[in-house]
Write a protein that binds this DNA or RNA. Structure first.
Lengths: 258, 258
DNA sequence: AAGTGGTCTAGACCACCAT
DNA sequence: TGGTGGTCTAGACCACTTC
């Protein structure tokens, strides 16, 4: 609308493809023409066609699979960080099939723990914790990794349960532990190589990182977690309490600015 | 560490430059060799050198200025969304010079308002509001835009004040209005062309969008704002109340899931 | 075997700005 | 004016999948 003809060719082509997708002409999962085909169609070089596709991949409108051509991405999932019901529940309600793949499930001795885990869970010396890393999926598509720590004291045989189910469901059903609240720290970042491999997606993908500590009604911390969510597949919302607002008393467990 | 020699050349060079920056060899604001110089230094083509620089620009480690060469970026600013004191105050405390540039300062009649503004500010028909759009800067670098609405009823001659100062400071000093809390909705997104122009940065930059409504101690909403923060220049933290947690009662002003 | 994306080359022209 | 980045070309080779 501003200066249509002065936009570089690769942006013009990206916009054109984006419009075909928005108009429904190209539905979700539809394959895009190959880079060489696009180049011939538009009378441009392959590198320029590739640049156009890259823009839409970065926006999350197209996805590349392996070394195959690009496809129209499914619409992004909505995830409300403040809503009752975690990711599993919200996906299910949206008609999406939630899943989980266990990457790590181990018991860690006290001495192997980072201080932040010890502090967050208020562990006493020699206490062991369970360390669980899960790849979360939606319709079999990886959307997040969860790196969680649970005190053995509270959940003695946690690793024997079926950990691909909702973990909060297990905690409630078998240990009668329910979250009364949590403190979360958010950070926008780009995916590093290590996590990219675990999540089976490209490096430098924009992500939302969340470090959180969940507590029960009697203010016992029962989970410390570091979650990484794909920014290209999820839209996040969160209701936060803003500046100058006091937190509910049961959550005021550490000084605001360490 | 995994497979050093099989990394593509442009990634190897990006890593090498990144290490020179982390080691302090290249300090903040140091200019990077030009694309043509890099190409010659490493015996590669200019397009490959350019790809290396682009990776670091996307990560926020390098910045491009106009059509000049790339420079080492200043460290990112930390911004705690839940801390007392807004962006202005936090920057000042960190030894950074906060600034603001007025993009729009106008009075809008009731009929020109979007429903979300009317609802958030609980306006009665025929009430006018002040609409202020400000470009926020840190050491003269653009870091955010704030698109805010204030009821005329509460702040009759707001536009006559010096709006490049802290607006909350003006509200407190001249109108005795102080925020008691706010509800915020967060969303990670990519910058569209319109806002990119206002912010004077490239399109598709990763950003954090916040829609918030601030209220006084007697639960009078006095500001509705839509903020966009650069994800490449800021690290955000927020203490959010997680699933299954009740908000402070004075903030429970609308149903959780509209 | 054919087609694909991932990477890389060695050029080119342009607009912009002060290195 | 000379150097810069922004864009674009017309090829190429490779590893991988099967479009």
């Amino acid at each position: 609308m501003t200066e249509p003809s002065t936009l570089p060719i690769y942006r013009q082509i990206a916009e054109q493809i984006a419009e075909e997708i928005e108009s429904g002409e190209l539905p979700a999962e539809a394959p895009i023409a190959s880079e060489r085909e696009l180049a011939e169609m538009f009378g441009i070089s392959r590198m320029t066609a590739r640049a156009a596709i890259n823009i839409l991949v970065q926006r999350g409108i197209l996805v590349r699979r392996n070394r195959s051509r690009a496809y129209v991405a499914q619409p992004k999932f909505r995830f409300d960080l403040s809503s009752p019901g975690g990711l599993h529940e919200q996906l299910r309600k949206a008609g999406v099939r939630p899943g989980a793949k266990i990457i790590v499930a181990e018991k860690l001795p006290f001495d192997a723990l980072e201080p932040k885990v010890v502090d967050a869970l208020k562990l006493t010396p020699a206490e062991a914790v369970f360390h669980i890393v899960r790849l979360r999926t939606a319709n079999d598509e990886p959307i997040a990794v969860e790196d969680s720590y649970f005190p053995e004291r509270l959940f003695p045989d946690l690793l024997d349960f079926h950990l691909t189910d909702s973990i909060y469901g297990i905690l409630k059903k078998y240990f009668s532990v329910e979250p009364a609240g949590s403190l979360q720290e958010l950070e926008i970042s780009l995916l590093d190589a290590e996590w990219a491999e675990i999540m089976e997606v490209p490096v430098d993908l924009p992500t939302l990182e969340i470090r959180r500590c969940a507590v029960t009604a009697d203010n016992t911390p029962f989970e410390y977690a570091h979650d990484i969510y794909r920014g290209d597949r999820l839209i996040f919302t969160a209701r936060t309490v803003g500046p100058d607002t006091l937190f509910p008393s049961q959550l005021r467990q550490s000084p605001p600015n360490p």
